[in-house]
């Protein structure tokens, strides 16, 4: 079954290996008929935005998703990042466990969705510390 996506004027997305932008004046509907990595603009995190431990995890999973050719390198990075986070904040282990499961099944899109929750949790944990709001 095809996946139907709607793209607003000027909105970008990653579709397979390509970056697609709606250049027209009105929003358009796309039907994607095979399984390819799809990432919408709002779900994309750039390297500059990956400024916290959990955002870095998100960024890494994103790379796994859109650049499967270099999976081995990203995987090593992923596990080292995860290890650091769990060591620093053991209470994240339940969320990270769920993400790991998706990663091992190579369901990166689901892993990304779960990592959103991890980022929210991270913000909560950081907000407990004074100066936690500062960005690096």
């Amino acid at each position: 079954m095809a996946l139907k996506l709607s793209l607003k004027p000027g909105e970008r997305m990653i579709l397979g290996g390509a970056v697609v932008m709606n250049g027209g004046p009105s929003s358009c509907d796309l039907l994607i008929e095979n399984r390819v990595p799809i990432l919408r603009e709002k779900d994309i995190l750039t390297e500059e935005q990956a400024d916290s431990p959990c955002r870095r995890i998100y960024y890494t999973i994103q790379l796994m998703y859109i650049d499967e050719g270099n999976l081995a390198a990203y995987t090593r990075l992923y596990w080292s990042l995860v290890r650091d986070v769990v060591q620093a904040a053991p209470s994240t282990v339940f969320l990270i466990d769920a993400i790991n499961e998706q990663i091992l099944r190579q369901r990166y899109y689901q892993a990304l969705k779960l990592t959103r929750k991890l980022i929210d949790y991270e913000e909560e944990v950081l907000s407990r510390v004074s100066g936690g709001a500062q960005t690096l």
């Binding site: 650091d84 620093a88 904040a89 053991p90 209470s91 944990v125 950081l126 407990r128 936690g132």
Partner: peptide, 14 residues
Amino acid sequence: ADMNEEGANMLMLQ
């Protein structure tokens, strides 16, 4: 397990 400590750890990691 201390949430404040975890927060501090996370900040340090960051």
